[in-house]
């Protein structure tokens, strides 16, 4: 793990964003357990390095397409944690005015064109965002996040092919967290790595340690620069792990506690913390303060969300045009 000669402030900001995502999701889980949330959620705890490493490589005006496990992507892209929490609690002040919920949070102004309830659903859309960037000549880039499960959808193959033949400025980022719900990636594909599939489309494919935020950042930066320069898409696989179950119904019969513990020993936040402390970029005690600040930001978001109004049922048909 290397600091890639990044300015200290930027490294600390990446650490802070990972802490914010972790705090948001731990709070989401807690609220769910307390019965204060109506609906479902998919937690990305353990995968924070992918969201942060990739979004750190983007400009504010770049786009992302997210997934059902998308809280991290949204926060890393710069969303307001208060409006996210309000959406999670189904409030009128949420990003989607309580119409979307956890699985559909979108921050369109911030360049997040939406989480998605359909596995692989954002991939075809990403090609169109790339097309639009190309036609408008705007110099933006679009990142399409997807999981290892989505890599077996037809939409994945159609979309990567389309992006490659037109040299679209799209970076396909596979968060390989080892399981498509319960299906282990080893049983769902014969190739060693998802990125091996890149050769079928004549584009670069690369696999990086998705628990190492700086490795993700470095690889994503290269892919983003390539896309921005007109070099076309890249398939970037980030090998990572979700600590929690697929969703709340998951009894986790498909994996062992030992396996989870092995991955947790690679925790992306702890790894960055150790590195920054070893290099003296974060002082002893400072990490705890950063973590506490993230938790307080989330608490403030909960207060904002809980004080926010519910959508009025009389507005049910607003934004219906046909």
């Amino acid at each position: 793990m290397k600091t890639a000669s990044l300015p200290t402030e930027r490294l600390r900001a990446m650490l802070a964003t990972m802490l914010l995502i972790r705090a948001f999701e731990e709070k989401a889980e807690e609220l769910y357990g307390l019965g204060r949330v109506h609906g479902t959620m998919h937690l990305s705890i353990g995968q924070e390095a992918v969201a942060v490493g990739v979004c750190e490589a983007l400009r504010p005006d770049d786009y992302i397409l997210s997934t059902h496990r998308g809280h991290g992507h949204c926060l890393a892209k710069g969303a307001d944690v208060r409006r996210m929490m309000a959406e999670f609690l189904g409030k009128e002040t949420g990003y989607c005015r309580g119409r979307g919920g956890s699985m559909h949070i979108a921050d369109v102004e911030g360049g997040n064109l939406g989480a998605n309830g359909i596995v692989g659903g954002g991939l075809p859309i990403a090609t169109g965002v790339g097309l639009s960037i190309q036609v408008r000549g705007s110099g933006q880039v679009c990142v399409a996040f997807f999981g290892d499960g989505a890599a077996n959808e037809g939409a994945f193959h159609e979309s990567v092919n389309l992006a490659s033949i037109w040299d679209l400025p799209v970076v396909f980022v596979c968060e390989n967290n080892q399981y498509a719900m319960s299906m282990p990636v080893r049983q769902s594909m014969r190739v060693e790595r998802v990125s091996d599939r890149a050769c079928a489309y004549g584009i670069p494919g690369r696999t990086v340690d998705g628990m190492d935020v700086l490795a993700v950042f470095e690889a994503a930066s290269e892919a983003v620069e390539r896309a921005r320069a007109g070099g076309g898409p890249t398939l970037l696989e980030c090998v990572t792990y979700r600590y929690r179950g697929h969703s709340k119904s998951d009894r986790q019969r498909y994996r062992t506690r030992e396996e989870v513990a092995r991955w947790r020993a690679q925790d992306p936040i702890e790894r960055l913390r150790r590195l920054l402390e070893e290099q003296g970029l974060v002082q002893p005690g400072e990490f705890d303060a950063l973590a506490a600040a993230a938790r307080e930001q989330v608490e403030e978001a909960v207060r904002f969300a809980e004080a926010s109004p519910e959508p009025d049922p009389s507005t049910l048909l607003e934004d219906v045009y046909a």
Binding site: Y63, L65, V108, L113, G121, L123, P124, I125, A126, T127, G128, V129, G130, L131, S132, I133, V135, R136, C142, G154, A155, E158, S159, N161, L162, I165
Partner: peptide, 19 residues
């Protein structure tokens, strides 16, 4: 290409971002 899912999504993404 003959990729109906991708080209439909392509139209959606383009429509979402100004075309």
């Amino acid at each position: 290409p003959i990729s109906e899912a991708a080209i439909t999504g392509c139209a959606i993404g383009a429509a979402l971002t100004g075309l």
